[in-house]
């Protein structure tokens, strides 16, 4: 029987891009966009995308009991992929919206980019928007993607305070921040693979084939 991939829909953003990009690489796997916690828990693999503000995101997840579904998938060993605000929501806490407690799957903290200037004295713009390079740590999700390959980012907050062994990818924007986090069956990225052309599609393809238990 072919696998089912759930893309979590909590009514916040544009899931079209994520589901279309997954469909592009899916083969016979079935992509389902769903807001039903039971369907999320039942899926073989789960994608947790996100855009917008963290307070609304967490509030809607709790209201629809999707927070519990995500925690259950995280504990189940089945592959779970967080994207952008989805990654941030997996951390312990975010400074956005006067401080919001998140799902706590990772111990990281989400902070706003500080005001900074680059080497030419120009102000670094926030949001960090565009194509930046990701320094990879060894992980099957990076297979066939060149180290320091570029991905598309758009975010004003970034993940910090992640233990080194959980940082799967690093990025520079005035400071170092975690562009990817990994722990067991969970992988989370700050960038948008669904908008990152070839590199992004390879990463999504890797996710659809990832066997977290295997060496």
């Amino acid at each position: 029987m072919s696998e089912t991939i759930a893309v979590i829909d909590y009514g916040m953003g544009n899931l079209h891009s994520v589901s279309k990009a997954l469909e592009k690489v899916a083969g016979d796997q079935k992509i389902v966009v769903t807001g039903d916690p039971a369907a999320v828990v039942a899926a073989d693999r789960v994608v947790f995308p996100g855009v917008g503000a963290i307070r609304d995101c967490i509030a809607v997840l709790r209201e629809r009991e999707l927070d519990q579904a995500i925690l259950e998938v995280a504990a189940s060993g089945r592959p779970l992929l967080g994207i952008c605000v989805g990654m941030q929501a997996m951390m312990s806490h975010s400074e956005e919206n006067e401080g919001v407690d998140c799902l706590g799957i990772f111990p990281g903290v989400v902070r706003r980019f500080p005001e900074q200037v680059d080497e030419f004295g120009n102000r670094l713009k926030v949001p960090h928007m565009g194509w930046n390079q990701v320094r990879q740590s060894s992980h099957p999700m990076w297979q066939n993607i060149p180290d320091h390959g570029r991905f598309y980012f758009v975010h004003s907050y970034h993940v910090t305070d992640l233990p080194e062994e959980q940082v799967a990818g690093g990025c520079e924007y005035g400071l170092h921040f975690a562009a990817a986090a990994a722990r067991g069956n969970i992988f989370a990225v700050q960038f948008h693979p669904e908008k990152s052309a070839a590199h992004g599609l390879i990463l999504l393809d890797n996710f659809l084939r990832w066997q977290p238990g295997a060496a």
Partner: peptide, 8 residues
């Protein structure tokens, strides 16, 4: 366009 072009 969005189902065939995977850039912003």
């Amino acid at each position: 366009m969005a189902s065939q072009v995977f850039i912003p």
